[in-house]
């Protein structure tokens, strides 16, 4: 097995361990398992970063193009945001119970789709906009995934008290925290759409053509735009929004990796008909 594959599956394995620790920690109400979960997530993050670096160094082509590369990078930013949040704000310890299973499952899926690194980048992708675009999409996803995780914490906290739940911040704080991550994710998605529009303008001369991938990204943006309006102009709080963010997260996974990548679009590079 190549080093790259080995590292990849080590990362997946550690994320799996982390996911299980979080889930059992929650079921058995054992605080210590959360620590195990957090540290195995950190341990898994190291080979995860190495895989990306190795791929990049192998060919010099930024490895964010195919579906498995895209998921790998999306999970990189999701786990990164999660780790930074957990190590700086130690109050929401069970947060990994949503984030890590998602990272585990999606990374496992990416592993089965992995292909050799491309040796050349399709001409249409040779644009500086691609950076803003990809980073906006990946960090946007990381932010709304965290928000959904906090939403789950909110729902758990509301139903239960004492024990591990007693150590969670109060519902009001969780609610505010989730809102901030959604607002941040909304901005990052905005960045993804704006840079995508400029990129399309550079290549095709039009900034918007209702191409399926464009529409999918608009869907993610509108979804969170509606969240913000429900909150700010309609005064929704707490439970309803927590559910909304959980459902929206599923929609985000489908709208990024579920469907658009199976379609032949602009994003897969250009057909040269000769």
């Amino acid at each position: 097995m190549k080093t790259e594959h080995l590292l990849f599956w080590v990362a997946v394995g550690l994320y799996g361990l982390s996911a299980c620790s979080y889930i059992f920690g929650l079921i058995s109400k054992q605080d210590k398992l959360f620590s195990l979960g957090l540290y195995s997530a950190l341990a898994g993050f190291i080979p995860h970063v190495l895989v990306i670096a190795l791929r990049w160094m192998a060919t010099g082509i930024s490895p964010f193009i195919t579906i498995s590369e895209s998921i790998t990078f999306g999970m990189f930013s999701a786990v990164l945001i999660f780790l930074v949040f957990e190590f700086t704000n130690k109050k929401v310890r069970p947060l990994g119970v949503l984030v890590m299973p998602v990272a585990f499952v999606l990374m496992g899926w990416a592993g089965t789709l992995m292909k050799d690194a491309a040796t050349q980048l399709a001409p249409a992708l040779q644009s500086a906009w691609i950076w803003v675009h990809i980073i906006g999409a990946a960090t946007g996803f990381g932010a709304v995934l965290t928000a959904a995780g906090i939403g789950l914490m909110y729902l758990l906290k509301e139903k239960n008290s004492g024990g591990i739940y007693g150590k969670l911040p109060d519902t009001q704080t969780l609610d505010n925290l989730a809102y901030r991550f959604v607002a941040g994710g909304f901005i990052l998605y905005g960045l993804m759409i704006v840079s995508g529009a400029f990129w399309s303008n550079q290549v095709k001369g039009s900034y918007w053509a209702w191409d399926p991938v464009e529409v999918w990204s608009l869907i993610s943006w509108l979804t969170y735009g509606i969240y913000l309006h429900l909150r700010i102009t309609f005064g929704w709080r707490g439970k309803k929004l927590a559910w909304y963010s959980l459902i929206a997260m599923i929609a985000m996974i489908i709208s990024y990796w579920g469907i658009p990548f199976t379609m032949e679009t602009f994003h897969q590079g250009f057909r040269i008909e000769h």
Partner: peptide, 8 residues
């Protein structure tokens, strides 16, 4: 949003 979803 619904139109967009239908459209893809």
């Amino acid at each position: 949003l619904v139109c967009c979803i239908a459209g893809v």
